Computed example of a mutant assay.
Amino acid sequence: MAAGAPPNPVATRVKILETATELFYRKGVHAVGVNEIAARASASKLSLYKYFPGKDELVRTMLAEHSDRIHAWLERRTADAPGGPARVLSVFDLLIEWFAQPGYQGCAVVNTVTDTRAEPAVAEIARRHLVRYRELLEARLAELPVPDAPALARHLLLLIEGASVVTAIDGEPAAGADARAAAELLVSAAVAAGTRP
C-alpha cells in the first residue's frame, strides 16, 4: 500500500490470508503465531483480529479458500483435455506437474489436518476436499464405459494422495508418475471390463 493511501480492507484481508497460507505451509500451523503473520503481512494484530477473531478461524478460512482454489484450478486446467481415459489421466498429469514444483511439501490440506490433530472443523474441510476430488474423478469416469465409477474414483484418489505424501517425504516427484501409471492400468482394466460382451 502506498504511503498516505487509505487502507483497503479487501486487500488487507487477502494479504493476511496469503501470508498465513505461505507460512502455515512452510512451517506448520503450530509453529506460526499471529504476531509473525501480522508482521509479514504488514498489518497490525488489530487488523488481523478484525477479519479473523482468532488463529483457529484464520486456519479454517485459509484451508477452505485454499481447497476452493485447488479444485477450481483442477477443473479449469483439465476441462479441455481430450475425451476417453486421457481425460481422467489429465488430473494426474496436472498433479505430477504440481508435485515437481520446487518447495512442494505435500498437500496443504493433509498437512493442516495432521498439524491440528484433526480439529473437527478442519477435519470437515479436509473431508469435503477429498469428496470434491472424488466427484471430479467420478464425473470424468462417468464418460467412460466403466462398471463402477464411484469405486474406481476412490482407488484413483488413494493413488493421488499416496503420491502426494510420498513426494513430500522423498523430495522426488517420481511418485506422481508411478501413480499415473497405476491409474492408467486401473482405468484401462475398468474400460475393458465395461466393454466386454
Rank of each mutant, 00 (worst) to 15 (best):
H66D: 05
S42C: 03
Q101I: 09
E65H: 03
K55F: 05
H71K: 06
T78Q: 05
I37G: 05
A183C: 08
G54H: 14
H30W: 13
R140E: 10
F24T: 00
S47E: 13
H66Q: 09
H129D: 11
A177T: 12
I125N: 09
W98C: 00
G4R: 02
A149F: 14
A163M: 03
A192G: 10
A38M: 06
G28N: 05
L158H: 14
G4H: 03
P53W: 04
L137M: 11
L156G: 04
I169P: 00
L136C: 13
F99T: 10
A183W: 00
D170T: 14
G103N: 03
H71A: 09
G54A: 15
A149L: 10
Y133A: 09
D56M: 11
V10K: 03
L152H: 11
L156N: 07
L23S: 05
A126V: 03
A11Q: 11
P120V: 01
T21I: 02
L144R: 07
V165T: 12
Y104H: 13
G171I: 12
L89M: 10
G194M: 13
L141P: 02
V191S: 04
A38R: 06
A139R: 15
L157H: 07
T167L: 08
P82I: 04
R127C: 02
D148S: 11
T114I: 13
A174M: 07
A64D: 04
P6T: 04
A3Q: 12
A192D: 15
E65I: 01
A31D: 13
E36C: 03
A64K: 01
R127F: 11
Y104R: 10
T116C: 14
N111S: 12
F24Q: 07
R87H: 12
R117F: 11
A20F: 03
D68L: 08
A79N: 03
A100H: 11
R127I: 01
N35S: 15
S188M: 06
L141A: 04
T78R: 03
G162Q: 13
L144C: 12
